[in-house]
Amino acid sequence: MQLIDTHAHLDFPRFKKDRVKVIKRAEEDGVKYIINVGADLASSHRSLRLSQEYDHIFATVGIHPHDADQVDGRALKVLKDLAKADKVVAIGEIGLDYYYDNSPRDVQKEAFKRQLELAHKLKLPVVIHSREADEDTLEILKEMEVGELGGVMHCFAGHLEMARECLSLNMYLAFGGVITFKNADKTREVVREIPLDRILIETDSPYLTPHPYRGKRNEPSYVRFVAEKIAELKDKSMEEITRITTANAINAFNLSL
């Protein structure tokens, strides 16, 4: 297998004690490449450093909606400078989160738009976080002409109509451990219905650990359980799922491998 985990946070503190072992274990389990995703300025710096330490790890830089109040002129300049590095392949994760509402919604929207503007300037795809904010997310993606950028709807959990709208905007849909949960029928329906050539796999490590390890810390080696579930839902072989989702990731992030 040559899988690509398209969304991990290996720079987070939960990997501090055994990060090297986690990365090695992923390689041994067939994870050929990992995209480590920035969530604020500090983690964007760490993500870039990690990508520079490992040939098979790429980075994204961006500020999560939880920290939308950090997105000012200075922060955007820092992100712009970080994004000039060869191993940075996207702006993200950015978007809206109305579940926690850690930042006021108007602040989230403005931060989202400003980072999409940055992505346009840099001609980079985007990694989108959208939780309980489908309507506003779609409105902003259309307003900001995200179709010209392309990118990924991270940990997609929307309904089928939302999925089709995102596909029309040149976005890939990424699925993680949630599709193995008992209460994820809606998400599994989306996986069944959308074209395989628009699907990515991810872990969101250290979060959302798939069955049979749910409740434990997630890590990139577990992305194979996501691939296996998609193979089951699509009635395809694991080899075909591996081949197609890897090709999709290469296309989505314009990876130079």
Results as ranks from 00 to 15, higher is better:
Leu138Pro: 02
His154Leu: 04
Asn183His: 15
Val152Asp: 01
Glu148Asp: 06
Ser130Leu: 13
Arg131Lys: 09
Gly147Asn: 15
Glu139Lys: 15
Met162Leu: 04
Ser130Thr: 14
Arg131Glu: 04
Leu149Tyr: 07
Leu122Cys: 05
Phe156Asp: 03
Thr137Met: 14
Val146Thr: 13
Cys155Asn: 00
His120Tyr: 02
Lys121Tyr: 10
Leu169Lys: 11
Ala163Glu: 08
Met153Lys: 03
Glu161Ser: 06
Ala184Glu: 06
Val126Met: 05
Leu160Met: 05
Leu141His: 02
Met153Arg: 05
Ile179Ser: 13
Gly158Thr: 07
Ala184Met: 03
Phe175Thr: 00
Asn170Phe: 12
Glu165Lys: 13
Met162Ala: 09
Met153Glu: 01
Pro125Trp: 07
Glu148Ile: 10
Ala157Leu: 04
Lys123Ile: 00
Thr137Ala: 11
Leu173Val: 09
Lys121Ser: 11
Met153Ser: 00
Leu141Lys: 00
Cys166Ser: 11
Cys166Phe: 14
Glu145Met: 14
Thr180Ala: 13
Thr180Ile: 13
Val127Pro: 00
Phe156Leu: 12
Met171Pro: 09
Ile140Trp: 11
Gly151Phe: 03
Lys142Ala: 08
Asp134Phe: 08
Cys155Phe: 01
Glu161Thr: 08
Ile140Ser: 01
His129Tyr: 10
Cys166Asp: 02
Asp136Trp: 11
Met171Arg: 03
Thr180Gly: 09
Pro125Ser: 11
Thr180Cys: 14
Gly151Ala: 13
Cys155Arg: 05
Pro125Met: 11
Glu161Leu: 02
Arg164Phe: 12
